[in-house]
Design a binder for these strands. Structure first.
Lengths: 242, 242
DNA sequence: TATTATAATTTGTATATACATGTAATGCAA
DNA sequence: TTGCATTACATGTATATACAAATTATAATA
């Protein structure tokens, strides 16, 4: 199917990112966009709502849609962007090294966490991430083997996400994340250049597919001085009354 | 105006939070909900999309809407929830102490940051947050004086947000946040029970009103062992192709 | 001129309809 | 019973219309 509203959204995103629509300016009115794209107003509104949710514009009733300044404070890393996608965006020199890659036995703590069938297995992947020659991130991934059957070192060095989505055709849908600070472990010291730091920032993620099956648990351990989390958040409509 | 979809959304949220709709179960179909609430399908879909965005349900094409398990991993703090709202939700014993509250001179670094008119002033509020008898958070707020003219110690001890929204009638719309880890400053040591910690988690927030004016800058400094950030994130539709 | 009232513009909400597409149930045939 | 095609049902997309509500522009009035 076409999905006009997605096309329009992406076209407008490009206009903003390329600076052809500047921050503070007003987008053409919905009516104007209708005739320009030859679509109905609801379709335009779907595109504009996406822009709004992702922090590109602010809609103001009676006035119009105002382009926001995305560059002032760098940008969202939120969502489910992977390390690789993120690195590419920021243009940093990065490197991924696969430390471990094997299937772990059933009946372990992680198996329960991932709600696996009893006879299946789980992939354990341990990777270090280098930025500017320093090992600053330790990623420990646990992926359900009954969902992802084949997994190679090369795939892990590239991007697991793009393999899962593009090659396997699985749709990653949402994740629950937790960010905390914890003392460094022996494992951290072995794989990360912790220097004098005695704590690391830990991001624990539970990643779900479209059919709500949990298929991955990830622990991403960052050296604190290299950690940065940027987020764009809207005050949600209904929640504030509860 | 009525805003039926908001009513329906909040009613369904209650059903889920009270356990009358259990995780894994399916919501009634959109068609069913239409006749039950006596509305059109688009209105139902607006309510369901809100549920989806806030992590209550997962919509699966051809099947229906599945209730997600919000309790397994505690819950979002994301968005713009304030310290007070958050504390009340988690049921923790908390206390807010106002350390400083005054108007700062123009032509300071913060004035530029807040893009103030030259002749106006800015409120500076410094507060400590106690949890279970320990001072673990230091909040430094800077608020534009030309937008919020009156501000008292009592208001700051309560909730600035509810004062701004409920009393002043201003609509807080969105925020850009950054989370980093930084060394403890003298100011931190003075106001926080840092104990042996030599670093703090810093959340810098830029808060905007509906008309896109930046009106507040906040630096929230947390003792690392008491810091926790929980987030629910959907893989956004358009972004992954860029 | 300055103020006020009115009209035009713009976004928000609600409804109705049509068709596409994915999933589940049904029934028929081998 | 099994396998396959059909049908029914569910959500996704697109269109059209109507009215509400906020803002801005215009016109009328003092």
């Amino acid at each position: 199917m076409k999905k006009k509203y997605l096309d329009i959204y992406q076209e407008l995103v490009l206009l903003i990112r390329e600076g052809k629509l500047l921050a503070g300016e007003r987008l053409p009115s919905e009516h104007e966009l209708c005739s320009r794209y030859g679509t109905s107003r609801e379709t335009i509104r779907k595109a504009l709502n996406l822009l709004s949710q992702n922090g590109y514009i602010q809609k103001v009733r009676g006035k119009g849609s105002i382009v926001l300044d995305r560059n002032k404070i760098e940008f969202p890393v939120s969502g489910l962007t992977s390390f690789k996608e993120l690195a590419e965006e920021s243009g940093q020199q990065t490197n991924t090294r696969v430390v471990e890659l094997y299937q772990i036995e059933p009946n372990q703590k992680v198996m329960e966490l991932l709600q696996c069938p009893k006879d299946s297995y789980v992939w354990k992947i341990v990777r270090t991430r280098e930025m500017d020659g320093e090992k600053v991130i330790l990623d420990k991934d646990y992926i359900r083997g009954d969902i992802v059957e084949r997994l190679t070192k090369t795939i892990c060095e590239d991007s697991i996400y793009s393999f899962i989505e593009d090659d396997l055709g699985l749709a990653i849908s949402f994740a629950k994340k937790e960010i905390v600070v914890e003392p460094v472990t022996e494992e951290d010291e072995t794989h990360i250049d912790v220097e004098t730091h005695d704590q690391v920032v830990v991001i624990r993620s539970f990643v779900y597919l479209e059919d709500t099956t949990l298929f991955q648990y990830t622990e991403s351990r960052h050296r604190p001085d290299k950690f940065r989390f940027v987020d764009f958040a809207r005050r949600s409509k209904g929640e504030r009354f509860l």
